[in-house]
Design a protein around this nucleic acid. Structure first.
Lengths: 339, 339
DNA sequence: CTGAAAGCGCTTACAG
DNA sequence: CTGAAAGCGCTTACAG
């Protein structure tokens, strides 16, 4: 037996106060200058006492804004994504925005579906950690809706983006190696495809490899078409078989770091005794390894906050200047024991 | 320079096809029986070719349903929550529902705000991993909106819930210990407060402690008012100082497991040489420890799917029977090396 | 099988 | 400072 206390409407409030719905609406939207102090107070106390809350669906339909932002992540279950989301969520909720979180599961098709669905749900803007498979489509969307990209860029577009400074991150890792007696570096990365940070890092590695300061170190980039435990184990096995002394492996993300640590265990290799390891991205477990993991960490939480701030600022300035910005945030090196 | 291609409306489609908007609307809602085969086809091909997509805000306002479910988690950044969310997301998206994910950050006040906000945004139902601080309020909500609880229960209510079977989980852990020569068990848990699974586990521990089969083992429950690394380290230090032989610590969640492992490292204690450890909840890093962690794991993904299924079924059956269900899913024991 | 018309609950020019 | 009225983009009884 459901006791449906009838939902209160704006006209109920209007009747109780003895004014029109227009005035109540003005109150709800904070337009206090356009009403007398006394009506203002009457409305305030009435709403307070009966606990009226406006229907946001109706507000959105009429005002064409929903105070909602769609956040579409390429892969939400990556720890990187989680931390970024935390930043986005915190900033948005503090500014009165709600977020739709969508997981593209690394599929361009899913990503497109979500974007369309969110347009139809009237979100005010998008924060996109794009799969890299929808550059053209996303450019199109950005002409009609505010978009900020996180972690990934789209070439030849004027879409704002917030990301870690990959060139600086690679530099940080390599300069650290210069202080050791490292003679060989293998960078393990998922196949870059059209994913901008992966491309940037590989490019930076290759630039450094050509530098005379690094001439005593041999470089290689290993691009994994499939990232799972089995493939990483096989790769590591080959790598170690051919291993010279003072070999450092750099892993392109937290998942790869995890797989390498697992693979080393399976192959009975010790880190750093048998090879050194630097991971991109901080992980929950970095510190609890027998030898804690040395890591080059992104400011994930900041990336989230900054992206949220950028989109909300854009929304507020509406059709004003709204300049494109590429915001780069620095990595930090956390030296522990594996390198 | 924004090129706003004017958003297509239902009346545009109606004009193009040469029927009324009512007919288009019927098509959109799949009421094909109430139109001729030929209009149906004309509408289908027109919509397809111009790429019309209905405005969901308007649909929601009019039809009073939004195909949206609010998921409010006590603490989203708990790995447990993440896995449950994955299950919810997958089931919902497959059924055409979108979800709002909210993080109460373990605050009852935030939880209440989110619930109200979501009501005003017209969600069709709630999946709640409640903080335990809003039992009365949630009961009230459940009279007016479909609610399913996950992981946590509300006493004296007839709200459906999906959770792991805590009594069975504790049993699993303790029966495993019976096979070792364990003589002392310390169960580390966040202070139970009004959080049902914590209470259930403590109760079960105490029931078992009283059993003759366990009479050779001494039991204690340690309820932590604050859960952070520092407090756990202190607790562990005390615990170990007083330690008899064959001491097993059981941790009440993944975060506690992490802190205990870190604390052991800091205190220079080895697991399982100095004490054994069983963690509630599987973690990403269980396998990469020097001695991989023995764990009692919840079927998190299943919990999510099951909860999503329950709420969607309820929504579909509308005002039908809609029976209250308490669904208990089993833990599984993963024996590794720490116990 | 199809359409005219009312209405979902708000907001906002417009007029006073 | 305030209200009457139109309208956001759909859906749905009702009538035919």
């Amino acid at each position: 037996m459901k006791i449906m206390k009838k939902k209160l409407l704006i006209k109920d409030v209007a009747n109780m106060v003895g004014v029109s719905t227009a005035t109540i609406s003005r109150f709800l939207n904070g337009k206090y200058q356009s009403m007398s102090e006394s009506t203002r107070q009457k409305i305030a106390s009435t709403i307070e006492s009966i606990g009226y809350q406006p229907n946001n669906i109706a507000r959105s339909l009429r005002s064409q804004e929903s105070k909602t932002i769609a956040v579409i992540m390429a892969d939400i279950f990556n720890p990187y994504s989680m931390d970024v989301l935390r930043g986005i969520e915190e900033y948005c909720s503090q500014e009165g925005y709600k977020i739709f979180i969508c997981d593209a599961k690394n599929s361009g098709a899913r990503e497109r579906n979500y974007i369309e669905e969110m347009v139809n749900r009237g979100v005010d803007g998008f924060i996109l950690n794009t799969t890299g498979e929808n550059d053209l489509f996303v450019k199109g969307i950005s002409l009609e809706h505010p978009v900020v990209l996180i972690g990934r860029k789209i070439k030849n577009s004027n879409i704002s983006s917030v990301a870690a400074d990959n060139a600086q991150g690679v530099k940080l890792a390599l300069e650290h190696l210069l202080k050791t007696n490292c003679q060989r570096v293998s960078y393990l990365t998922p196949a870059p495809g059209n994913v901008s940070p992966r491309i940037e890092r590989v490019d930076t590695f290759e630039r450094f490899a050509a530098l005379s300061a690094f001439s005593h170190i041999s470089f290689e980039c290993i691009k994994l078409a499939v990232v799972d435990r089995e493939h990483v184990t096989k790769t590591l096995e080959t790598l170690i078989a051919s291993s010279s002394q003072n070999h450092t492996i750099i892993t392109g993300n937290g998942l790869l770091s995890l797989y390498v640590v697992q693979a080393a265990k399976a192959l009975n290799k010790r880190i750093p005794e048998d090879f050194s390891l630097i991971g991109f991205d901080e992980t929950e477990w970095s510190e609890i390894l027998k030898n804690p993991l040395t890591v080059v960490a992104q400011p994930t939480y900041d990336i989230g906050c900054t992206a949220a701030k950028k989109i909300i600022t854009t929304l507020r300035k509406a059709n004003e200047s709204n300049e494109t910005q590429i915001i780069l945030l620095p990595f930090s090196l956390i030296v522990r024991e594996t390198a």
